[in-house]
Simulated assay, not measured.
Amino acid sequence: MESVIDRACAAALYSEGDAGLDTGASLLAADPSSDEELHRRGEEFVRRAWARGWQPADVVRAVRRELEEPAPALVSALITAETGAYATLPPRWADQIAGLPAPAPRNRPDRFTYASALLELYRLLLRLPAIEPVGPAPGKAADAPHRPPAPGEPRMLTRIRALLAKAEATGFPEEAEALTTKAQELMARHSIDEALLAARTHGEGTPGAVRIGVDAPYESAKAVLLDSVASANRCRAVWNSDLGFTTVVGFAPDLEAVELLFTSLLVQGTAAMTKAEAGQRAGGRKRTKTFRQSFLMAYAQRLGSRLAADTARVTAAAGEENRGGGPDGGAGALLPVLAARDVAVTDTAERMFPRTTTTRLRGATDAEGWTRGTEAADRARMGGGTPRLGR
């Protein structure tokens, strides 16, 4: 005989609209003895998401995009319960789980409403497509060993985060520029040092990948900004506009740099856009949507040029510093080492994404927004000594 859970799921999960949800929720609300099995079923659906390449932050992001409250809190409770069964979790999962929304209490505000929201969540979880994995699922061994972090590496990352946090908080553009310049220099030099160390010690490190959310509104401009940051840090970025994230492929220090720098530049750009827009509206202007789109697109385009130039400058300086250091560490060794890592990153990205497409982005139609965004990018430039680009 079919259980209440099976009948409720059959009615709600494989149909469209609210009628099936109402039928399933009514069955569950009338049978309190089904509660534990209902939640075990939800944990099973979460495990299926792991098997299809999803990670905790990805699942929460998808739920927030598609469903209203309390769905994110409901899936948080399921993820917390499911992942609690593992002795160890893959790298990065601990941070993602720590950032989950507060889990929702059961059967609030009433049994029917709660069951309906849970079934709607299960319907979404079942329909999540398979995506490219960016690391092992819980309980699975990593494909390749990873070199332990170098001594002092956590302190370096802490220093970079502190510099970027100060840049985001200050109201003085010159101070923000100086702070972000120093942070980018530390990132670039740390990446080069890691590459040379791996070459000297014949390290086994291979490129990895992370997924970074690219949320509406103005997601195309944000995706361009993330692509610019990734390219400048020797990574490859592939945007999935339907699912709201970009997968960035690269070596671990570079991936860390991309995450930190993109987040900071987006915060700085959004603050500058809000300030510039307020000035426009004070003058009687109302075309805020086109202004914002053009602002952020110009901001992303200009920063792309600056980041690329800054990376080249830091790399050249590092090569000069190491000149004459021998076959394993001199300037003659640096460029081949970086070239080899670029090839490895490209090969990994092409294996993960054998078929990619280009897309036409919405153009920047607001001249004032473009000008203001370009100026904001100039103020946020990442490298000292770079000449100001003309219009």
Rank of each mutant, 00 (worst) to 15 (best):
L361V: 09
D378S: 08
D378C: 01
V337I: 12
R372V: 05
T359H: 08
L338Y: 03
T365E: 11
T365L: 12
R355P: 00
R355A: 14
V343K: 11
D347E: 15
T358G: 15
D366A: 06
T346L: 11
R379H: 13
L338T: 04
F353S: 07
L361D: 09
T346D: 15
A340K: 10
L338R: 07
E375I: 12
A340I: 00
A349I: 04
R351V: 10
G385F: 08
E368F: 04
D378I: 07
G384M: 06
T374I: 00
A367M: 03
T371P: 00
G373P: 05
R351Y: 01
T357I: 09
V343E: 14
A344G: 05
A380T: 07
T358A: 12
R372W: 06
G383F: 03
R351K: 14
D342W: 01
G384D: 07
A377R: 03
V345N: 02
A377P: 05
D366S: 13
A349W: 02
T374C: 03
T358Y: 08
D366H: 15
T358F: 09
A344C: 01
G363F: 00
A380F: 03
A340T: 04
L338F: 04
M382A: 15
A339H: 07
E368Y: 03
R379P: 02
T374L: 03
A344R: 08
T356H: 04
D366C: 11
A339S: 11
G384W: 03
R355F: 10
L338V: 04
V343F: 05
W370G: 10
T371Q: 12
L361H: 12
A344H: 01
D366L: 02
G369M: 06
A367K: 11
D378H: 11
G383Q: 03
R351T: 13
T357Y: 10
A377Y: 05
A376K: 09
A344L: 07
T386W: 02
R355D: 13
V345E: 04
R355Q: 14
D347F: 01
T386P: 01
E350D: 14
E375G: 04
R372M: 13
R381G: 08
T359Q: 13
A364Q: 07
R381S: 12
G383H: 03
D347A: 14
R341T: 02
R372S: 15
L338D: 03
F353M: 06
E368A: 15
D347L: 12
L361E: 13
W370V: 08
D378F: 06
F353Y: 15
R360T: 15
M382Y: 00
L361F: 09
P354S: 07
R355H: 13
